[in-house]
Amino acid sequence: MADKPRIKLPKEATKGEIIQIKTLVSHVMESGQRKDAQGKPIPRKIINKFSCEFNGKPVFACALEPAISANPYIQFTARVDEDGTFKFAWTDDDGTVITAEEKIAIKA
């Protein structure tokens, strides 16, 4: 949980360019369907929501379901028109939010 999410996007882009963003976060994604050695159900613990915003505006968001495997990898694209910061947030079932941010600049 304390792991830093892994994010890859270019440091620079031309104005209006569509860039690819890759994210990988460390998480168990326990589905809630499994039982432990004593036969007791293991409580569900997944990331149920991912969102990304650029300079405060939403860029991409999705809901995650229990069938998604551990360490979810999410890849999407975004158009960049100005310098700014991408903010990423992964929301856990228990309410904790893993956050990260990445800056991008417009090529002069």
Binding site: D3, R6, K8, K22, L24, S26, A70, Y73, Q75
Partner: peptide, 10 residues
């Protein structure tokens, strides 16, 4: 980036 093994390396 996608290879989850690198989470362990980090």
């Amino acid at each position: 980036l996608e290879n989850p093994g690198f989470l362990a390396v980090e």
